[in-house]
């Protein structure tokens, strides 16, 4: 996970709201990796994740005047990314197993086969989660958001976040059982 300094983010957001390009640039360099990985975990395609990342930042910049500085700006950015990901998967039905080519696991890496298998299974397990469930899990596990923030990003209730998270953990636990013992 990429460590992000929230105070810095807030400072940059103030600049962005005032159309400060330098602030936007710094913000882009700071947040682009997280957003890219968030989207990647939805689309499992590098090129698509890249495009959606660009779209996210463009939408963010074009709507900068509407930025609410009390809301975590990070959450706002994720909100845009999340909506794009949802729309994308509506436009194009999800392919269940992602392209082997997109699967960047280094097949020649034979140092630890069990490890490689685990990664493989893990990615499949997360991919198998229903969309909402996966979003909750990824936001909590990889992007470090609290349940209340996740509720904000996804525009669902706190209770739904809790339920989805329990569901995600239960499914993952079941699917990855052999690796967890």
């Amino acid at each position: 996970m990429i460590k992000i300094d929230n105070a810095r983010v807030l400072f940059l957001l103030r600049g962005i709201k005032q159309k400060d390009e330098a602030a936007f640039k710094e913000f882009f360099f700071l947040m682009q990796p997280s957003i890219f990985y968030y989207l990647f975990k939805f689309v499992y395609n590098k090129a698509t994740a890249e495009d959606l990342t660009q779209e996210t930042f463009i939408k963010f910049w074009l709507n900068a005047d509407r930025l609410d500085l009390t809301l975590s700006g990070k959450a706002y950015l994720y909100k845009i990314a999340h909506n794009l990901a949802i729309n994308h998967s509506k436009r194009k039905p999800q392919t269940s197993a992602y392209d082997a080519e997109e699967h960047h696991l280094n097949k020649s890496d034979k140092t630890n086969m069990d490890y490689v298998f685990l990664l493989d299974d893990y990615q499949k397990a997360v991919n198998s989660l229903p969309e909402r469930c996966r979003a909750v899990f990824v936001l909590c596990r990889f992007d470090g958001f609290e349940y209340s923030e996740i509720a904000e990003i996804m525009e669902i209730s706190l209770q739904t976040v809790k339920n989805q998270m329990s569901k995600a953990l239960a499914v993952l636990r079941k699917r990855l059982q052999s690796h967890l013992n």
Partner: peptide, 30 residues
């Protein structure tokens, strides 16, 4: 089990981040 799950899932390998300079330039173009 939860700790193990939490830790293991993070080990997942991800593709490299797209080159930030290029992405930034593209963003400006767009």
């Amino acid at each position: 089990t939860l700790v193990l799950l939490w830790k293991k899932v993070a080990d997942s390998k991800l593709p490299p981040i797209p080159d930030q300079d290029i992405q930034w330039a593209k963003l400006q173009n767009q």
